[in-house]
Amino acid sequence: MVELRKLAVDYPRGSGRSADRVRVPAVAGADAVFNSGGISAIVGPSGCGKTSLVHAVAGLLVPSSGEALIDDRKVAGVRAKTAVIFQDYGLLPWRTVEGNAELPLALAGLGRAERRSRVGPLLEELGLAAFRDFYPAKLSGGMKQRVAIARALAAEPDLLLMDEPFSSLDALTREAAQEFLLEVRRSRPLTILVVTHSIEEAAYLAETVFVMSGRNPGTIRERFDVPENAAAARFAPGSRRDDFRATPRYLKLCAAIRSSLRGAGPTEDGATS
C-alpha cells in the first residue's frame, strides 16, 4: 500500500547555479491511499504538480513536509522495488533494446549471463525479442514504451509509477498500450500508479481516481472509486469482461471527473466554468 500524508514538495526558483533561496511550492497537503495490487490514477491539468508527486513517491526528491509511505515505511531515497516510467521513457539512446532493459540488473551488479537469462524471457513476453539489438532511435513510440516497461519489470518491482506514460502516443497505439499495461498487470502482482492528464484514461484504467488541481501548489481534491476496475474483479484468473468504455457508467464517471476538474478553479488557459 502506498500512502501520502500531507505531502508537500517545493523546488528552488530559477535553475542550477544561481538558485536563490526562494522556493516555489509544487504540491501541498496531498493525502491519498493507493491500494496494493490495484491500479490508481492521478488526473490533473499540466502544472498541477503531478510529476513532483511521482518523484516524491519514487524517492527522487525529498518532500518539504509530510511524507510518502510504501508498506508503512517512509520513502527515503530510491527504493529497489519501485520502478518508474517517465513520459519520454528515459531510454538511453546509446544502449540497445536489450542494453536498456537489463540496465537495472547491471546496476545491481549482476553478471552478463545472468542478465541475459533474466531479460530474454521478458523481451519475448513484450514482443521485443526480434529488436534486441536495435537502438531506441529506430523504434516507434509504442515500441519505446514497451522497452521502458521491460526495463521497469526487469528489476521485478512491486510498485510501478508511470508519469504520463501514454501521452506521446497516437490514439490507437495509446489504447493498445493501455490494454498492454492491463495484460502486464494480469501476469504479475503489481501496484500501479498512473499519472495522466487524460480523464478517459484514468477512468478506464484505475480502481481509484484522484483528481488533482490548483497550481503552485496543486493538491489532491477529490477521490473517485471505480469498483468495476477493482483488481479482484479484473485480474483474477479467468476473469473476462465487456469493454467498460461502452457502458453508461463509464461515461457518467468521466463526466463526474471532468466536472470535478472544472469546479476546482482556473485551468491552464485561465478559463473557469
Binding site: 518523484h55 519514487a58 519520454d88 528515459g90 540496465l103
Partner: peptide
C-alpha cells in the same frame, strides 16, 4: 554535460545509480 536531459538522469537515478 549541462545539456544532458534531466529525464535521462532521473530515469537512471530511479534505478538506484
Amino acid at each position: 554535460a549541462r545539456r544532458v536531459p534531466r529525464q535521462l538522469i532521473d530515469s537512471v537515478r530511479s534505478l538506484g545509480a
